[in-house]
């Protein structure tokens, strides 16, 4: 469970082009559920996601993860948390070009000093599960859009993170792939993982497995509308 209280995030603080991407957010994201953040472009969804995922520190306000305050921690501890607790699927997937699929999937585990053989087995099992085993050794730039997305999901899960964070995971994907993605999310739920994602896409935030929809406007929560 993640709680945000009075969280503000300013960009370019103290400079003339200062901008408040988030402004006084109070929010509880339940564990063991699927939560979708939605809202117009520029409303601060990605920013909020980065605070939830301990990717950045809020300018003011507090973030608690399972009761522990994490907003004041040094960067290296945020990193530690990030690699054990969160798996990330980015808006543009952000696979490292030039490396093969399996090398990309192994990446988040590298700083943990894993056993190479065991790690490779784990990565292969993930890829197998997502139907990508036969593409393990090709460079990621040759993958199709759907495959890239699944490779990114495999990478996000390599450290067995209990919380998966996905930013617009289905942008540019057709309905077949959106449904396939929802199947994957259902699998993750079955494994007991929490899923937090942003989406513009009604096919996502109206899906039946979504427990919780948060709407945002201009860096604030939009409380007018009832959750779908």
């Amino acid at each position: 469970m993640i709680t945000l209280s009075a969280v503000t995030k300013l960009y370019n603080e103290g400079r003339p082009n200062q901008m408040a991407a988030l402004d006084g957010i109070d929010l509880t994201v339940p564990g063991d559920a699927v939560t979708v953040l939605t809202g117009p472009s520029g409303s601060g969804k990605t920013t909020l996601l980065s605070l939830i995922g301990c990717m950045a520190r809020p300018t003011s306000g507090r973030v608690h993860l399972n009761g522990d305050m994490v907003s004041g921690l040094p960067e290296s501890f945020l990193t530690g948390l990030r690699r054990t607790t969160f798996g990330f699927v980015f808006q543009r997937f952000n696979l490292v070009r030039g490396l093969s699929v399996i090398e990309n999937v192994r990446l988040p585990a590298v700083p943990l000093g894993p056993d190479h053989v065991e790690l490779t087995e784990r990565a292969m099992a993930r890829l197998e599960h997502l139907g990508l085993a036969d593409k393990a050794d090709i460079p990621v730039e040759y993958l199709s859009g759907g495959e890239t997305q699944r490779a990114a999901i495999a990478r996000a899960l390599i450290n067995d993170a209990p919380i998966l964070i996905a930013d617009e995971p289905t942008a540019n994907l057709d309905t077949v792939l959106v449904n396939r993605f929802l199947d994957i999310v259902a699998d993750l739920r079955a494994e007991g993982r929490t899923v937090i994602m942003t989406s513009h896409d009604p096919r996502i935030f109206t899906a039946s497995l979504v427990d919780n929809v948060v709407r945002m406007v201009d860096g604030r929560l939009d409380t007018e509308e009832a959750p779908a």
Binding site: T59, G72, P74, E75
Partner: peptide, 14 residues
């Protein structure tokens, strides 16, 4: 000042 989340503090930490 650790309690301060300002850019300067972050930069010092880095």
């Amino acid at each position: 000042n650790l309690a301060d989340g300002s850019r300067e503090q972050l930069e010092m930490e880095r």
